[in-house]
Each structure stands twice: as C-alpha cells, then as structure tokens.
Design a protein around this nucleic acid. Structure first.
Lengths: 133, 133
DNA sequence: TTCTTTGCAAAATGTTTGCAGATAC
DNA sequence: GTATCTGCAAACATTTTGCAAAGAA
C-alpha cells in the first residue's frame, strides 16, 4: 500500500493524523520488514509505549498494517499487503518468508471441505530449517 | 500414547513421578482435548501454579504433551500424538480441529522447495469460520 | 470548539525464577 | 542419602487501562 493511502486510512472515521502516528507510519513503511512494538518504542523515544500500542491497534483496524505471532515473544508488525507468510524455525528461531501462494492449494481445500476461509497472517508456520535438520 | 508409556517417559533422565505430576497427567490423558495451564491449576487446587508450568514443560520435553498457541491468550496443552491441527476463527474465536493430513501436501512442497520440515503443532491456522463469513 | 490522542503511571495477563523445605527413588 | 521436585512469593515480559492535559480538525 502506498504511504499516502495509509495516511488517508488513518483518518477514516474521525481518526487524527498526529505527529506520533506519522513518525510510526514512516518507520513501518520505510522498513517494510517486521517490527515489534518494543523496537518501535525504543526507536521513537519521544513516543510513549502506550501510544505505540494504541497506534498499532488503530493502524491495524484501518488495514494499514498486520501483525503476526512468531513465537513466544512479542507480536511482529509489518506494512499490510505483502503477500508472504512467515515460517519460524522451532530450533534456531530463524524467520523464513515464503510466497503466500504456497498456501493457495490448502486455502482452496479448507474452503471446499470445511467452509473455512484461511487467512494468511496472524500465525506463522512452525518448521525446522535446513540448517537445524 | 498410552498412559503407562507416559509414566515411563516422565521418569527418563532421573525424572520423578510425583503426586502432582500423576494428577496432572491423569487429567491431561482423560480429557484428551486442549487445556490451558490456568485451567489445570484451578482444577487441581493442591498443585501450585508454578508446579503446573514446570510439570507441563517437563511433560513436553519428554514428548508426552504438546502445546499450541491459539490466539492472544494463554497456550493450550494436549496429549501428544493426536494427528489434528487447530484452526482458530479470528472473529468468534472458535477452534476447529482438522485432520493433520490436510497439511501433507503443503509439507511436501515446503520440503521439496525450501528444505523446510513443517511441524504440525505449535501454531494454529487462522481462519474465518462458516458462521462468521 | 469538539472529539481524539497522548503521556504517565498503574494494572492486568501469562509465565518464569530463587530458594528452603519436602519427596521420590 | 541424594538429586529432583514443590510451594511460596517475588520477578518478569508483554500488553492494556484510567485519567487529565495536549493536540488535530
């Protein structure tokens, strides 16, 4: 998603585009990878941790970012719309990004057989990476 | 896995089969479904919460149980070896158990293309259930 | 001017740890 | 007898909340 579109979305439903939000959005957009709330907070010392969480929640509500659970630690956030899914190595913790297409066949089966709509984000796949096998 | 086999496993490497552990094992075995540490602790008031966590960790180490993250709440534990995977509805939180075979094709692809060994437990699939669509 | 957002501090949630005494083997 | 396990209480990590002041529209 383009940065400007994100700015517009943040304002939907009376949302305000504050300094803190703009700062966080720029960071999230620029890096494109995954970040935890704690990393964001520490990179933006002027922005309170509570504000980081509240901003992230708002960004997610308006579809600007999405979060995924990579393991036992904190959630990871990234700019929305990247069609990849995370696989986490259970042993070394490495995160491997896979094209989301890999799940297309599974998604189709789950839909056909159970009426379930598979959503790509939110949970990682649990794997063992080549190095750890 | 049979209950007796579990008892044996708990003793591997000098592990002791204590009253608390036997109680928890019986509960986990009998119910076969998923339980959180907190539920276990409250069903066994004589067993301290710390003991529950430590026992669960030990049971998992010796392969008697496995845990999965179903969402934002606590982890869920269940008797090992059940070949199903959990799908969690993002909207209503319902947990749907699917035959693990559904992931066989995906597992094969991930192995062939990336050298990744997919492991079935630990993370749930994120879905929208028929009722919520 | 009005409604939203912020910072701060405190609470809530889920889990882990240190330690001295109890228990399994 | 000796190493492991337990309860207790305190710490920890992540996230959420209440509230009064500040800021966006």
């Amino acid at each position: 998603m383009a940065f400007d579109e994100a700015l517009a979305r943040v304002r939907t439903g009376g949302g305000r585009l504050t300094g803190a939000r703009r700062e966080l959005l720029e960071d999230l957009h620029r890096r494109a990878g995954r970040v935890t709330a704690e990393e964001l907070a520490s990179r933006h010392p002027g922005v309170d941790q509570a504000t980081v969480y509240r901003s992230l929640a708002h960004f997610e509500e308006v579809g600007v970012i999405e979060h995924v659970h990579l393991g036992h630690g904190p959630a990871s956030y990234r700019w929305a719309g990247t069609r990849t899914i995370a696989a986490v190595c259970q042993e070394c913790g490495a995160v491997i990004d896979l094209p989301a297409d890999e799940l297309d066949a599974l998604a189709r089966r789950l839909d056909d057989e159970y009426g379930l709509e598979l959503s790509l984000g939110h949970f990682a796949l649990s794997v063992r990476c080549p190095a750890c096998r």
